[in-house]
Amino acid sequence: MTSNRLLFLLPLATLVVMAGFFGWSLLSGRDPAAIGSAMVGKPAPRLEAPSLRAGEPALDTALLKSGKPVLVNFFASWCTPCLAEHPLLLRLKERDGVAIVGVAWKNKPEEARASLAKLGDPFTRAGFDLDGKLAVDWGLSGVPETYLIDANGIVRLHFRAPIGPRELSQILALVKAGS
């Protein structure tokens, strides 16, 4: 009889467990659209792209093996959220001396250049990926996305959103630890 009673409690128990998950999801502020990253913890992919700047050699994967952490930022001049993170990138370069490689994604080089000339250029080196082929290798879903590659060429951070103050401190902590 007791086991029978327990059987009748089973639906309620299932509901409570489910509701627990829902509550957890709602209260944790989980973003259902977040897709995660398969890149973190793996060696950085190839980084080969024509240079955005006249007279500079094309981007080369060797850039990521300089023995220092490097930030790789995919951006585009047509991308509004990129504008939001732009000042933070400038700050990272000028105040914190972080090496940043920029890649203009699906962006005509002249437009990307014009936009950087106007807003300030936070990049140590800059290239462009007009057809998005390089981006697939990086598991990119759109712009802006930012990767932190450590001194050993391993991806440590991957943000699929504009960098904000929280992301900034994560980057700085790892950069300081790595250099």
Partner: peptide, 8 residues
């Protein structure tokens, strides 16, 4: 694809 974008 999984290597780049995960099981997702």
């Amino acid at each position: 694809m999984v290597a780049r974008y995960g099981d997702y």
